[in-house]
Amino acid sequence: MNQKPVSKILVLDKSSVHNRTIKEFCDANGLVPLKARKSTVMAVLRTNIDLGGILYSDDFGDTPEETVQLALDIHAARPELPIFMRCDSQSSQTGLENKLDQIICATYLADGMEKLRDAINRYIFCVMYPNALLRGISEITTSVLTNQFQNLTVTVDTPYIVRDRVIFGELFSLIPLESAWCRGFMMLQAEATPLMAMANGRSAIPAQPTFREVNDLLGEITNLIWGAFKNRYIGDNQASLSRVVQVPIIVNHNHRYISFGSENPQLCFHLRLTDQVTGSCFSIYERFIFNLSWSPDDFMEIPQEVNQLIASGELELF
């Protein structure tokens, strides 16, 4: 698996000439482009919960006024997403900057993709994640889900960076991560009905589970991933005294939105659990939000003495 995170980016640019440049740029810079038409922009924003940003062109609307209004509408709908605007010329770049300077994070010219690259790195790929961490989270999560769901195949996409704050599904769990090198939360998100259907007969919960039993299953999955994460990356290291610092977490049910009080991008893993016989599939999104502290230079894997290793599930008698 490629361990360099990618990021899904919404492309709102009608230029057929520039589209090839954008495609090449995305391929070269870890971006997964998602195109939308003017008429579908708001629907795409509502249904895509894991975007990293938006590439917008200054002629996306039929008129300059429409271009401005659409940008304002997009920003109002998803203010956490950085908008990078391509301008036709230096003059229009300056003109639109004046009208949209509150919501456009960077502008660029078609022949000046270096500026876009710098902006992408500043706004999306601004947090570095150690390869060992990305690989380990994938391994831990895949192992836990494989153990919890019999006869389902678990696959995980390349980890990606998201900026949005939209909640996927109806069910999510949160658990704090506290260490000397990171402080924040792990969050698992799932749709309740598919999870309930797929868990039925394939997991430790009873047949025909109630929503509380499905809640409990997600809680235990969270606990198992958290425990393995701690054992592998935190050990007995204590977080610094700054651990007393906390910020409120805000959930807006109406907008299916959760804020951790930080504008930082989040690290996201998309897990797919598939029944190979029927082809039915459901998703779990796993996010890591290091909103309180992030010191990747201090990241370390806890070395395990081979003679001290006891396999999970086995009894170690004292």
């Binding site: 153990n147 919890q148 198992l224 054992n231 006891i310 999970s312 009894l315 170690e316 008698l317 004292f318």
Partner: peptide, 8 residues
Amino acid sequence: GWIVKPFK
């Protein structure tokens, strides 16, 4: 004694 989950 000590058992690391999952329970087997």
